[in-house]
Amino acid sequence: MSLLAVEDLVVRFGGVTAVDHASFEVGPGTLTGLIGPNGAGKTTCFDVITGLQRPTSGRIRFRGRDITRSPAHKRAHLGFGRTFQRLEAFGSLSVRDNVRVALDIGDGVRGLFRPPVDDVDHLLARVGIADYADRRADSVPTGVARLLDLARALASRTSVLLLDEPSSGLDERETAGLGALLRELVAEGRTVLMVEHDMDLVMSVCDGITVLDHGVVIAAGTPAEVRADPLVQQAYLGHCDEGAGTETTSEIEPVTETIPTVRP
């Protein structure tokens, strides 16, 4: 049985359909890659799954339960955790305090009166940024901020982890480390869903891959199946084979997020 199911999801921003009747499932204890060209609707899917974006229609089920209308913080308590493509570290706090806050919030009101359980430094060491623990989060390099985002998402007893381009900003060595870490997390029983542009990473660590193109799920299967799928070849890799898939840019800007202007 699937742990997380996206059912017939549609998200429209103004006239643009970012996600177009997409359905896919994520099995428990698996590492699933969500890939597709820029603007395919991957981050939008993440926003809907984590409760930051209301879908136009469709459902999200978690352990069979409909959570489509449940707010973001409630989903966090169900075990959802995520990272952000555009990084959302708490800039005024130190790297260590960023992770501590995640623990504090996870503990809720009762946690305020309980002595701190300090596995913070252990977590920082695990993702490989222990050296930066005392630096302010707005002063660290992008790669570190990205790993911090991951450490923070891990802190609050997350069982389902959604990672939005975790390798961008990392060098080759760090990316390899990330791949190993992801496999470890899955081995510990966590479920990971990952949007990623580094095809080598995706193909080497994922159990399954779902491919989105223009908001539509065009393929799903094992890395080998997806790689061989002619639809994927055509839409994703196209004929610019030497460069495809290495770019990292932003998704379509949802209209609701842009700044209001005068409507005469």
Partner: peptide, 12 residues
């Protein structure tokens, strides 16, 4: 065809 549409709602 889309001249009255907001540019942000166009496809890439």
């Amino acid at each position: 065809e889309r001249r009255r549409q907001l540019a942000g709602t166009l496809s890439g």
